[in-house]
């Protein structure tokens, strides 16, 4: 039984078709890396899954929640999939704790005290227990991204979408974020991540999806995809002959 079912998804921006019929099934606990050149549609695919982009054709469902454009369906879907962004997108007017508490109290109507306990637990999980009262602009990029992960986890999603979560970070901060993601993977969280960290994809992911010109061009276990790329496009992308 698949957790995320993506069937023949199409998406155009104006005249340009960015997704030309994507099929992808993700099983519970799978960690999937989506790789490809910029413009190949990988970020768009991720954004479609939780309804940040509307789709023009096909269907997407996550654990039975169908992607439909009305607010009630979107909310049901978004409670099941969390998302982490390249630019962190923490709420700058709230502390780290406030960031993690807000959506719990507002969306799930969790009582304040429970939400706060959950926030402390999640910040501890990403190694930032002592930063509960710090504002985002007092944190490093890596710390901000970890708060963003804690914020998404506090909603107890069954899958997480990670959109180039380390691309905006200074090189020395990448490791601390990847360590958290690696831990999540080890705990069995279903992850779908767009990434440029090939080594990480090779080590952690159960499957790798190579996208090219709006299609899933090649898909397989990382050892196959990285060691024996079948198509010339993937070979070129990986820089092997």
């Amino acid at each position: 039984m698949s957790l995320i079912e993506i069937t023949d998804v199409r998406k155009s921006f104006g005249q340009t078709e960015v997704l030309k019929g994507i099929d992808l099934d993700v099983k519970p606990g799978e960690v999937i890396a989506v790789i490809g050149k910029s413009g190949s549609g990988k970020s768009t695919l991720l954004r479609c899954i939780n309804g940040l982009e509307t789709i023009d054709g096909g269907s997407i469902s996550v654990a039975g929640a169908q992607l439909l454009p009305d607010e009630a369906h979107l909310k049901a879907l978004r409670l099941k999939v969390g998302m982490i962004f390249q630019q962190f997108n923490l709420f700058p007017h709230l502390t780290a704790g406030g960031n993690v508490i807000l959506s719990q109290t507002v969306v799930k109507k969790t009582p304040k005290r429970e939400a706060e306990a959950m926030a402390r637990k999640m910040l501890e999980r990403v190694g930032l227990a002592e930063k509960f009262d710090a504002y985002p602009d007092e944190l490093s990029g890596g710390q901000q991204q970890r708060v963003a992960i804690a914020r998404a986890l506090a909603m107890q999603p069954i899958a997480l979408l990670c959109d180039e979560v380390t691309s905006a970070l200074d090189p020395e901060l990448v490791a601390e974020v990847l360590a958290v993601v690696r831990e999540l993977a080890a705990e069995g969280m279903t992850l779908l991540m767009v990434t440029h960290e090939m080594k990480f994809a090779r080590d952690v992911c159960s499957r790798v999806v190579f996208m090219h010109q709006g299609r899933v061009h090649e898909i397989g276990r990382p050892e196959e995809v990285f060691a024996r790329p079948k198509t010339p496009e993937l070979r070129q992308f990986l820089g092997v002959q």
Binding site: N50, G51, L52, L74, K75, R78, L79, G82, M83, F85, Q87, N89, L90, F91, L102, S103, V106, V107, K108, A148, R151, A152, M155
Partner: peptide, 11 residues
């Protein structure tokens, strides 16, 4: 990004 982050949290 603020709209997107808050939307992705279900608001």
């Amino acid at each position: 990004g603020q709209w997107e982050a808050s939307a992705s949290l279900g608001m």
